[in-house]
Structure formats: C-alpha cells, structure tokens
C-alpha cells in the first residue's frame, strides 16, 4: 500500500488519517483513500450476496457496494443511529462504501508515531491492521484498507 505523505519533514513524513468509531474503538484510514462520507441512506440488499455485503446504494447515479465493517471486524451488528456513516473509499480501483458507527475527525500523525500492532493472534480484527498509534491517551487503530477488501482475505473469511 502506498502511504501518501502530505508534508515531508526529512525522514518523518506526516500522514493524515480519517478516524471513525466502531464499537468502542477508534480506527483510522488513510485520507487519500477516502472519497467522501455519507449519512446513512437506504441500502438495497442484494439477494445471494455474501453476508458481509449490506447491499448497494445509489451514489449520484453510480451503484456502490456497501460492506458491513462490523461484520468484517467480527463485531456484533448494531442498530443504525443518527451517527452512522457510510465512508466511500477507493481501494485497488474499486469504489466501496464501508458502514461505520461514526466518523470523528482527520488527524495528523508522524510516521514515527505509528507503532506496529501487537500481535494478538489470528483474530479477525488484527488481520487488517496496519499499525496503532497512541496519542492523547487514545489508541488509534490504523486499518489497511487494501487488506480489508482484498479478495484473498474475503476468501479466507468465507471459508471460516
């Protein structure tokens, strides 16, 4: 995955991350991969689609698949609230929506602040984690979207 540097101060580039909440955790995704953030709209379910696919939405005339991030991260599904957002991301040439509990902010992180994730076993969640960042007493989990969406991973999930 290419990490986009917004400002490069020698060897320590600053990266921007969009943070969202899922269950009680904060996650971050690279801002360069985020196209837009939508309020929850009606999602048309697609019969016969895999379980992690919530359905499709109409994004200004384009049909966009929305996946259930909770399902993907092995979290129980929750009711849709006022804060529920669909983050439209582009990864590997495809545009996909991921449904999250809430979108918080954009944070600037230095490359050096990102630590590798503690290996907590073969958990569903850890599979897509690129690293973690401890800032202001909060732990931010940085998600590797390409892994989140890659076919092999889907395959594995399907086989589980």
């Amino acid at each position: 995955m290419s990490i986009q540097a917004t400002k490069s101060s020698e060897d320590d580039p600053i990266l921007q991350w969009v943070t969202f909440r899922l269950a009680d955790e904060s996650y971050g995704i690279n801002v360069m991969q985020v196209q837009e953030v939508l309020r929850y709209t009606d999602i048309a379910p697609v019969p016969g689609a895999p379980g992690y696919v919530l359905g499709i939405i109409n994004l200004r005339g384009n049909v966009v698949t929305v996946i259930d991030t909770r399902d993907r991260f092995g979290l129980p599904s929750e009711e849709v609230t006022d804060n529920t957002r669909i983050v439209i991301i582009e990864s590997d040439g495809q545009v996909i929506g991921i449904m999250v509990d809430a979108v918080a902010e954009v944070v600037y992180l230095k490359q050096s602040e990102i630590e590798t994730a503690p290996n907590v076993g073969n958990d569903d969640t850890s599979r897509f984690i690129q690293g973690v960042c401890h800032k202001n007493d909060q732990l931010l989990i940085l998600v590797d979207l390409d892994k989140l969406l890659s076919d092999d991973e889907w395959q594995e999930i399907a086989e589980l």
């Binding site: 048309a44 697609v46 019969p47 689609a49 895999p50 109409n58 049909v63 495809q94 996909i96």
Partner: peptide, 24 residues
C-alpha cells in the same frame, strides 16, 4: 454491480428508479 458483487447469481445489474432508489 461492483467487483464484490459481480457474478452474484440471478443479478444482471442494478438500476436507479425514477425516485432515486435502487432496483436490481
């Protein structure tokens, strides 16, 4: 349909109806 959904049995694609909703 998107990459993840292409090849879903029974679905040829989607369209957007006059009221802006999606129809399969």
């Amino acid at each position: 349909l998107g990459k993840t959904l292409i090849g879903t049995a029974g679905m040829a694609g989607a369209t957007i109806t006059g009221d802006g909703r999606i129809a399969l």
